[in-house]
């Protein structure tokens, strides 16, 4: 049943800039199965976008450089493939939707044609057939009046409609992996709900594997089967959605979950709980745990040696010295969600 689509192993990506080497991704490993949604959350600037753009081979090199690691898609190694060779995968096997659909749509080309061109690039079918497929895609993403909408220009659509067109383009070649980087950040929650429903439908019907990057933990709770938490260029914790929300292991995850404003209460001097301090300098990442400088539980060893990965029986893992047998017992803080989650069961 669990058909492995993608395995990323110890991926390291740097940018060579005037000021020096920015170590944006520092040893990231994860996998994605058919018909599952992996959410990637974490610190802004922690390397989420760079990671998935590397999988898509979208980072211009230079300045970007894959220092090491492997990306295996259905048994085939992708690292080292030429741009030409990658073209066979991009758009066909993997497709990506971005936060801002307008920057990725061609403003001077009618929508139907844009979808059809995308199909023609990858498949040897007639223009007529491609047009028909495009029409079908628009129908599938729930755009009303698809015949009429085929001949409109992107700027005449609202944000929600554009995002659906992006999804239609992304799905036109029936990719096995859909990568969505902040796909609904620019939309109101009613349109967001429609888009998320659409993505879940695809997953169920076509078995698409989805990698979803978002800061909205509500969206994550709604969509994710598994969650990877990134900090400072690394995945610091990874587990099922329930494990991450109800039983998080890493102090950064604790901090993240604790920062949310609790639903149903309002300010009156109420401060949100932010994680104090600033993220690590990726020019010179710390030798030990990347989170050490901001971690309330930091021990001496944390600043010296990178923590090893501790894995539970179910496969939930985290990299933190607190999980070492010799470390003192630390109770995770109480979160609102846990109480709510417990109650609803």
């Amino acid at each position: 049943m669990n058909e492995r689509l993608l395995t990323v192993e110890d991926l390291r990506v740097s940018f060579d800039t005037y000021a020096g080497e920015v170590q944006a991704v520092r040893g990231v490993s994860f996998h994605l199965d058919r018909g599952e949604t992996l959410a990637i959350v974490g610190e802004s600037g922690s390397g989420k976008s760079v990671t998935v753009q590397t999988v898509m081979a979208l980072n211009p090199m230079p300045p970007a450089r894959i220092k090491s690691g492997s990306i295996v898609y259905k048994g085939r190694e992708l690292v080292g493939l030429s741009d030409r060779e990658m073209d066979a995968y991009r758009g066909k096997e993997f497709a990506m939707i971005f936060q801002d659909p307008m920057t990725s749509l061609n403003p001077t080309m009618k929508v139907g044609r844009q979808i059809a061109e995308g199909i023609l690039m990858h498949e040897d079918i007639s223009r007529q057939e491609a047009q028909e497929r495009a029409l079908n895609m628009l129908r599938m993403v729930g755009l009303p009046n698809p015949e009429l909408n085929m001949v409109r220009f992107p700027h005449t659509y609202s944000g929600g409609m554009r995002q659906r067109i992006m999804i239609a383009i992304a799905l036109a070649c029936n990719p096995s992996i859909l990568i969505a980087d902040e796909p609904t950040t620019a939309l109101d929650v009613t349109i967001q709900a429609q888009i998320l429903e659409l993505m879940n439908g695809l997953k169920a019907e076509l078995g698409t594997g989805i990698i979803l990057i978002t800061h909205d933990l509500g969206v994550v709770a709604r969509m994710a089967d598994r969650i990877a938490v990134m900090y400072g260029g690394q995945i610091v914790e990874c587990g099922s959605a329930d494990e991450i929300f109800y039983d998080p292991l890493h102090p950064y995850t604790w901090g993240l979950l604790g920062s949310m404003p609790s639903t149903g209460v309002r300010r009156e001097g109420k401060k949100l709980i932010a994680i104090p301090g600033t993220p690590p300098d990726l020019f010179a990442p710390p030798p030990g745990c990347a989170f050490a400088a901001r971690c309330p539980h930091c021990m001496k060893i944390c600043t010296q040696t990178p923590p090893e990965q501790s894995v539970t029986e179910s496969g939930h893992y985290a990299s933190c010295w607190l999980l070492d047998k010799r470390a003192p017992q630390v109770e995770p803080p109480e979160f609102d969600i846990r109480k709510e989650g417990g109650r609803d069961e």
Binding site: T190, Q192, A193, E197, D216, A221, A224, E340
Partner: peptide, 18 residues
């Protein structure tokens, strides 16, 4: 339509899409 950061609640909620 606001999603809640609570997977169990999200799974059990009744969805009425606008």
């Amino acid at each position: 339509a606001v999603p809640r950061a609570d997977p169990r609640w999200e799974r059990s909620r009744e969805r009425r899409l606008m």
